[in-house]
């Protein structure tokens, strides 16, 4: 190595004592620097995550925005956030926006709280439901917005933690998310069927909006199945609430 004995400043650099001393000092310095940086940047980072969530929620109802605008627009369009229990009753004690779906999803259904966002754009109301499930490697999640008929999809947005780039990770692409628009989650007899990410739907342009299917991505079968599963699994829990909403709407009309 590029050192020579006369360069030595201090005690014998090869002694065990010096090595331990150096390592201990180094660890202390590094740990405190990193801890200081992490804690001083934490609020900025958390803010980014929060605004990104608002951005995602807004994009399902067709409002594209940058992160700076997200908070203002979120307040403007999102009229209510509910944390529902398994019977479809809102739990006032829980802040739905702060709910961590990855914690909730591990609980039995009757202990979970199901977040729901209500939005109103141009006097049309939407129901936005957060999704979470498993892809091939790790968690996938997203949001799906239903129109006021509680059937037709207004928009969907997906994200993932570690799906394969170019294959499973393509679920975050706009062209994939756009395939969900106008699809129906209930079949003609009123049964919840969700949306099937299908390899055999013979409808690559997704023109048929009554088939409850979107065209899958080649090479992303398991991620696609994960999307299918998470949509039907999550929506099922909202059925009691949807029933109530439909009854209220029917009584108003």
């Amino acid at each position: 190595m590029g050192f020579s004995p006369q360069n030595c400043l201090v005690m014998n650099r090869d002694s065990n004592g010096y090595t331990f001393l150096f390592a201990a000092a180094m660890v202390l310095v590094v740990a405190s620097t990193l801890a200081f940086t992490a804690s001083s940047l934490k609020s900025l980072q958390a803010d980014n995550v929060r605004k990104e969530k608002m951005q995602n929620i807004l994009s399902t109802i067709g409002i594209q925005t940058d992160r700076e605008q997200a908070e203002t627009l979120y307040k403007q369009y999102i009229t209510g956030t509910l944390a529902l229990d398994h019977l479809g009753n809102p739990d006032e004690k829980v802040d739905a926006f702060q709910l961590k779906l990855n914690n909730e999803i591990k609980k039995p259904a009757n202990e979970q709280r199901f977040p729901l966002y209500k939005a109103v754009v141009d006097n049309i109301s939407y129901y936005i439901i957060p999704l979470r499930g498993s892809g091939l490697w790790d968690a996938i999640w997203g949001y799906i917005a239903l129109k006021s008929d509680i059937n037709t999809i207004q928009g969907a947005v997906f994200d993932h933690k570690g799906e394969t780039a170019g294959l499973g990770a393509e679920i975050t692409q706009q062209w994939f998310m756009d395939r969900f628009k106008e699809e129906k989650v209930f079949n003609s007899s009123g049964q919840l069927v969700g949306i099937n990410v299908s390899k055999t739907n013979n409808d690559p342009k997704d023109t048929d909006k009554e088939d409850h299917e979107v065209d899958a991505i080649s090479g992303a079968t398991i991620t696609g199945d994960g999307v299918t599963d998470m949509i039907i699994e999550r929506l099922t829990h909202y059925l009691p609430y949807f029933e109530k909403e439909k009854t209220t709407m029917a009584s108003i009309n």
Binding site: F3, R13, V30
Partner: peptide
């Protein structure tokens, strides 16, 4: 460079 103990220099580099 004149303070790093030779035996753990790779570890030190990695930490930095």
């Amino acid at each position: 460079r004149n303070l790093i103990p030779n035996r753990i220099r790779i570890i030190v580099q990695l930490v930095v």
